[in-house]
């Protein structure tokens, strides 16, 4: 249906990340590798810190009031929390898709896709052609090509989420963070997003938070289980689900708590 150009992604390495809301610690020193061109799923009961962790990976967490982060996140050996690194340029390189679709509602579909390249003054990518490519990549082109100038709010929830993914990949990021991208969607839209994510890993390093264990099993190469702000276990997905090493992981994946 669509041709996605393969590209070697970058490794993302997390070293002892701690995330705070005021005094309370939401992530308690997590170290984990997200290998290039692989999908890593973060699972765990709600409140376990998986969303907070993913928001530390593009420096979104620190935007919240009284929120702070300690530790290192290395993208290709470069610390995104380095002293001379601007969070704005980090977010441009590490894209994010949120739980609820959040297109700019009054902006047209086309403008939404091009918002990123336009912001960074990237003339080469702020073109209609580039937008078309991004929309084709997410399988939305056929549905919207005749109404590119309509406001994004006109689209259905599933379409909006694919638009948000198109908007994120139009910036040609190295990593794509997805924070429960399907939790607000119906099963059919969920399936389309899952297929899309599987295609996108040819180009990006993908980190996906999900509360849906089946989803993790369907799409993730590796799965990490978090509990109470700590990383309990990370392994190849089939190993984590079938041969969990930690008893807590076993309890969770077999549905005994959470």
């Amino acid at each position: 249906m669509t041709t996605t150009i393969a590209k070697k992604g970058m490794n993302l390495t997390v070293k002892n990340i701690q995330a705070f809301y005021g005094e309370s610690k939401a992530v308690k020193g997590v170290s984990i590798d997200f290998p290039a061109n692989k999908i890593t799923a973060l699972i765990g009961p709600s409140g376990c810190g998986k969303s907070t962790l993913v928001r530390c990976l593009n420096r979104m967490h620190e935007e919240g009031s009284s929120a702070s982060v300690r530790g290192k996140v290395l993208l290709n050996e470069e610390n995104i929390y380095g002293a001379d690194v601007d969070p704005v340029s980090v977010r441009r390189t590490i894209g994010m898709v949120f739980q609820k679709p959040n297109p700019f509602p009054t902006m047209s579909i086309l403008d939404n896709v091009l918002a990123g390249p336009r912001l960074s003054g990237d003339r080469a990518h702020a073109t209609r052609k580039h937008a078309e490519q991004a929309l084709r990549d997410v399988g939305l082109w056929a549905e919207v090509k005749h109404k590119l100038n309509r406001p994004a709010a006109d689209l259905s929830g599933g379409q909006q989420q694919r638009l948000c993914i198109a908007r994120a990949i139009a910036l040609e990021p190295e990593v794509l963070l997805m924070d429960e991208p399907c939790s607000a969607l119906d099963p059919i839209s969920t399936q389309r997003i899952e297929e899309l994510v599987l295609r996108l890993k040819k180009r990006f390093t993908i980190v996906m938070v999900t509360h849906n264990l089946q989803q993790a099993q369907r799409v993730a190469d590796r799965t990490a289980f978090m509990l109470d702000g700590e990383l309990i276990e990370v392994a190849a997905t089939s190993n984590l689900f079938n041969k969990p090493k930690d008893s807590r992981t076993k309890k969770y994946v077999t549905g005994q708590f959470g």
Partner: peptide
Amino acid sequence: MSVFIATSRRRLV
């Protein structure tokens, strides 16, 4: 070279 594309001076200013 940094993997991060620096934000342009104009935008920061």
